[in-house]
């Protein structure tokens, strides 16, 4: 029996992690997997860290994973990638967006945004993919599709066929934005 694949998505409110997790869930459902998706709502959403956990497999029990059990972490922001690094399992994959969004304590000047995040993550997780998602999305015509670039990079590393991703993307994205999102997905898928 296939052990569930554990995916963590981490970002900051407004970065489109929810849409990404919906496309992932849709594709995994089409592939016939059992599925659990877990998020936290409420106070945490006001500019705080946003984490979505997605587990897919033949049979998934727990909606939550714990430390050192994520197969793949998809980090929409560098600091959030660093924060969730303890959840990555040894040998796991970190896909990280090369973008900094300073949190309130940094804006207030109380602390510095940490330097050397990517170097540290690479040292812990050799299989780290750094993505310039904003740049790639802008090149596709819309920087707001950065989340779909990241999703593309995740898609190639999951046991779900590309055509199912495309179907799911089409179901979640408004028709007028589908073309740019398909381009963004392809840009990520090639990484």
């Amino acid at each position: 029996m296939l052990e569930p694949v554990n995916v963590l998505m981490a970002g900051v409110g407004g970065q489109g992690t929810i849409l990404a997790s919906k496309v992932l869930a849709g594709a995994a459902e089409k592939a016939g997997y059992d599925l659990k998706v877990s998020e936290v709502h409420g106070m945490a959403q006001r500019g705080g860290s946003v984490v979505t956990q997605v587990r897919l497999g033949e049979k998934v029990h727990s909606p939550l994973i714990g430390e050192k059990t994520a197969d793949i972490i998809l980090a929409f922001e560098k600091l959030e990638g660093l924060r969730l690094l303890p959840f990555l399992k040894p040998g796991g994959t970190m896909i990280i967006n090369d973008q900094e969004i300073p949190p309130a304590p940094v804006l207030a000047g109380a602390v510095e945004y940490p330097a050397g995040i990517i170097a540290h993550i690479r040292a812990v997780a050799p299989d780290t993919v750094v993505v310039d998602a904003l740049g790639l999305a802008a090149a596709c015509g819309n920087a707001r599709a950065a989340n779909v670039v990241l999703l593309g990079a995740l898609a190639r590393r999951l046991p779900v066929g590309e055509e199912l991703w495309q179907e799911s993307l089409a179901a979640q994205v408004p028709a007028r934005l589908l073309e740019v999102n398909r381009a963004a997905f392809a840009a990520g898928y090639g990484l």
Partner: peptide, 16 residues
């Protein structure tokens, strides 16, 4: 055996 991680500043919820 793991390298020491840089401290990750908290990202508390804030007024918009």
């Amino acid at each position: 055996g793991l390298p020491e991680a840089p401290a990750a500043p908290a990202r508390p919820p804030v007024l918009c």
